[in-house]
């Protein structure tokens, strides 16, 4: 029976040693809620829309990024440089002032006049101070004027 006791004691010692390290790390990601526009909105080329997103973190926020790109069905981007309409691509990022746990991102985004009609992905990214990242996607469609 002695052997069993030794084994139990040893594992206990090891467990104790293992739990000794401090959990001073933050793996929790920020949260993002896109308040506007609504998912599956329709816009016209040449218009602009208001993006509003609420970003929160358990500790401290760091920065945000907006990424808009064309989403042809089945993810087939054919090269389109010769066409009159362009697959619109938009990217913008910014820092959030230090110390904030909650931040409302507001941005007016103008859709260029020559934007190709079709489905687009709207992505909002957020980073906290530790490098935890969240991304949220929505879709919208750019349609003909009068659609």
């Amino acid at each position: 029976m002695k052997l069993h006791h030794t084994l139990v004691a040893l594992s206990a010692a090891l467990l104790f040693a293992a739990c000794d390290d401090d959990n001073n790390y933050d793996s929790a990601k920020p949260e993002i809620m896109i308040l506007s526009p609504e998912d599956d909105s329709h816009f016209h080329a040449g218009e602009s829309f208001e993006l509003e997103a609420l970003i929160r973190d358990n500790e401290e926020l760091a920065s945000w990024k907006i990424d808009i790109h064309f989403n042809p069905n089945g993810h087939v981007h054919k090269s389109a440089s010769t066409e009159a309409e362009l697959e619109w691509q938009y990217s913008l990022n910014g820092n959030i002032e230090p110390g904030l746990q909650s931040f409302t991102l507001k941005q007016t985004i103008s859709i260029p006049v020559d934007t190709k009609h079709g489905d687009y992905h709207l992505g909002v990214y957020a980073l906290d101070k530790s490098g935890n990242e969240t991304v949220v996607f929505q879709e919208f469609e750019v349609t003909d004027a009068g659609h």
Partner: peptide, 15 residues
């Protein structure tokens, strides 16, 4: 792979 906290400028990329 260490997350740097800097945004990549490439399309579709986060940090």
């Amino acid at each position: 792979l260490n997350p740097t906290g800097e945004w990549s400028i490439l399309p579709h990329a986060g940090q």
